[in-house]
């Protein structure tokens, strides 16, 4: 992967953006569903909580995926460059 070094500093930013955008989507779905149905703000609360949970779930999924990629990359790096295995 050529872009792995470049994306090193974007991981934290990507995590934050993922969480916030999920919360936003939850908020908007909840707001419009609420206005369309009962109009008592219950669905809004439910969907904001759902959006937050979804944001954390997807964010951590993303972090785990990146960590896996880095493990693979580091192993290859150790093998080729240093060969000492810095544990």
């Amino acid at each position: 992967m050529p872009n792995i070094r470049l994306s090193k500093y974007g991981i934290v930013l990507n995590f934050g953006i993922t969480v916030i955008s999920n919360m936003l989507v939850g908020f908007f779905i909840g707001y419009y569903l609420d206005r369309w149905t009962f109009n008592n703000k219950l669905l809004l609360v439910i969907f904001v909580l759902l959006g937050t949970a979804s944001g954390l779930y997807n964010g951590f999924k993303y972090l785990l995926k990146e960590a896996e990629k880095y493990d693979k990359f580091d192993k290859k790096d150790d093998h080729h460059d240093r060969g000492d295995g810095n544990n």
């Binding site: 953006i17 955008s21 936003l24 989507v25 939850g26 779905i29 759902l50 979804s54 779930y57």
Partner: peptide
């Protein structure tokens, strides 16, 4: 149980993609 979260996560992708 994860179905709503998957839907919200999928809909959030274009939003974060475009807002960035």
């Amino acid at each position: 149980i994860m179905f709503p979260m998957n839907v919200v996560g999928e809909l959030a992708k274009p939003i974060s993609h475009s807002l960035r």
